[in-house]
Design a protein around this nucleic acid. Sequence first.
DNA 1: TCCATTTTGTTGAAATTTCAACATACTTTT
DNA 2: AAAAGTATGTTGAAATTTCAACAAAATGGA
Lengths: 219, 219
Amino acid sequence: MKKYFDVLRKCPLFAGIEDKNLLSMLGCLNAKVEFFDKKYTVFTEGSPARLIGIVLSGSAKIVQVDYYGNRSILGRVQPSELFAEAFACAEATALPVSVIADEPSEIMLIDCRHILHTCSNNCVFHQKMIFNLMKDLAVKTITFHQRIQVTSKRTTREKLLAYLNIQSKKAKSNSFTIPFDRQELADYLEVERSGLSAEISKLRREGVLESNKNKFRLL
Amino acid sequence: MKKYFDVLRKCPLFAGIEDKNLLSMLGCLNAKVEFFDKKYTVFTEGSPARLIGIVLSGSAKIVQVDYYGNRSILGRVQPSELFAEAFACAEATALPVSVIADEPSEIMLIDCRHILHTCSNNCVFHQKMIFNLMKDLAVKTITFHQRIQVTSKRTTREKLLAYLNIQSKKAKSNSFTIPFDRQELADYLEVERSGLSAEISKLRREGVLESNKNKFRLL
DNA sequence: TCCATTTTGTTGAAATTTCAACATACTTTT
DNA sequence: AAAAGTATGTTGAAATTTCAACAAAATGGA
């Protein structure tokens, strides 16, 4: 497990926990590591929501697919980030999303019951983890707020610009790379890919932005 | 404060906390109660995100307004429910939403620093509250997932039906009352009010549902 | 009760999005 | 290096939404 320490130290779940305690905690949590190849399914929609995932290497997409096959991308997780923690913490019976590896990825899996229900009154590490989970969930909630701020715009153009502005702010620069290809960005913004492509071209012609693949610069 | 105990016992923040401890906790948290008349602003977008709100009586809307005046309704809070807790817990600098009383309402306000930063290692009640906050935030995250499931549909009809189906499931009945008027429902679904009205009429003509004001029955 | 105000429903025109189809560019595999 | 597959851009027609304006219904005060 030691080879994952660099990643785990950055993981919100283990914030403020010292290396010397980490190894025994992982044992206590019964943490497992699994490998998933590109496009393989980490979690399937409808399965029990008992495991919390941590990306150790690679990345994955959180997706929802409705009965018509329309895909909505809830987000993407990178190394050291948690996923499915909300469903586990809320003790949901079934996952409403699927998680798909974007590239060959190592994923740490922890049964949430080891975090929520064991020695939560005595062990200072468990208390710390619950505090960390609370922080993490608060941040996720804010991320959803931001997303709704973007998708509640009524036109493709407005959604795109709202999204690019947030990305630009996040990168603290007017040029930045987004973590989506065209289809994925369309799924995230909840618009048509072709309409999105058209709008990007239009904004480029109007001199509002420059772009090359998933690199953008706002002018 | 004792007159609020019936409501507070149902509040997720105080789950599992006995009456005999509640009064002293409220003192320790420095909880204040304020009254807001209908349409009055409880929290203003942009103000510091330090207070957590609990509805004691009445109700309030969580709203976001963009630079074009388009309003998006993030949700509505009822007695015993928390609001703004995500921003407080994430220690956000500024609120990205406003909270507006829907009717004459009593609101309890608690400075989040009294929950997050005081005696969090020693006092068992603080630990319990943090656990409760984590649960609450997990449930809120799931609520947002549901909302995205609804608003990610591409047509007014699909959004409406997805929303009504969720409400029907929640009520465990095919007839139910929704907490929004037409304009509010339109803002929640992110569609035009006039188009929404038209769609409801159409569904009624097609025999898919019956409705009267904000009462619906799915057939 | 009556008046003023707010909410809801309706409609047609304008704007926008979706859909389908295809061309081009880029990647990956063999 | 060629072939196959994938991603992106473009277009026009069809479908849908938005917008604006108004009528009808419901609500809240005076």
